[in-house]
């Protein structure tokens, strides 16, 4: 039997993550594409870290950070009484960090493709930087946003290591598809594992097909 709860948790997690990443990632990508700061390369490297780190490493440090004594956990305790570890919120925080490059990099690339010359032209015509961003950069980066949204969403759906470390596999709260598949395989329920796996396989292929056909140049690069 296919259970609906893990699918819903997965979709909810991916939606929250993508949404938050757009809010954080857009200004970050804008800054990266415009700055001449020496910090740029360092920040770019930090953003790209999840691409090369084993998810378990990230998950391990997140677990420490999210714990009540950890950095994020301590800050969180001022906002809410509920603990972060093994919660859906904790999972969202982990996913945001883990999927960050998949949103920031396509956005940065598309902002860079719009380029400074057009921005400067807009300035000379009386447009403020915000006006320029809204009316010139954003419309010209529409594809970049589409790529960022699909990749950010799909990558969160396909996440395993980090959620395993910080999620705690609690049904209907933090139990996502990839973990359900793992559980089924462990108890040799291959049929159920197949249902979910085929579904994810097809979903991922379709997403990648759409993104690649939109624009290769905006793909994630390490």
């Amino acid at each position: 039997m296919i259970e609906l709860a893990p699918i819903l948790v997965t979709l909810k997690l991916a939606s929250f993550t993508t949404f938050i990443l757009l809010i954080i990632g857009t200004p970050l990508a804008w800054w990266l594409s415009n700055t001449g700061s020496k910090l740029k390369v360092a920040i770019e490297s930090v953003v790209a870290l999840p691409l090369v780190l084993p998810p378990t490493v990230l998950g391990f440090y997140l677990l420490l950070a999210l714990s009540p004594d950890g950095f994020i956990g301590t800050v969180w305790s001022y906002i809410s009484d509920t603990p972060l570890s093994f919660s859906f919120t904790g999972l969202v925080i982990g996913s945001v960090i883990y999927s960050m490059p998949f949103v920031v990099q396509p956005l940065q690339a598309s902002f860079e493709m719009v380029g400074k010359p057009l921005q400067k032209a807009a300035y000379t015509l009386g447009a403020t930087p915000y006006d320029t961003f809204k009316n010139i950069v954003l419309p010209l980066s529409a594809r970049g946003f589409l790529v960022a949204i699909t990749l950010g969403f799909a990558h969160t759906v396909g996440e395993f290591g980090v959620v395993l470390m910080v999620g705690g596999n609690i049904p209907e709260v933090t139990q996502v598809l990839s973990i359900v598949i793992y559980d089924h395989v462990e108890v040799l329920e291959y049929a159920q594992a197949h249902y979910y796996s085929i579904g994810l396989l097809v979903f991922s292929f379709v997403v990648l097909y759409i993104t690649y056909s939109l624009n290769r140049k905006l793909m994630v690069r390490i």
Partner: peptide, 18 residues
Amino acid sequence: PWLRNMAYVFQDHRLFPH
């Protein structure tokens, strides 16, 4: 620059493509 009220025609036209 956006408050200077000076216009600029560049070597490359820089029309907004969209």
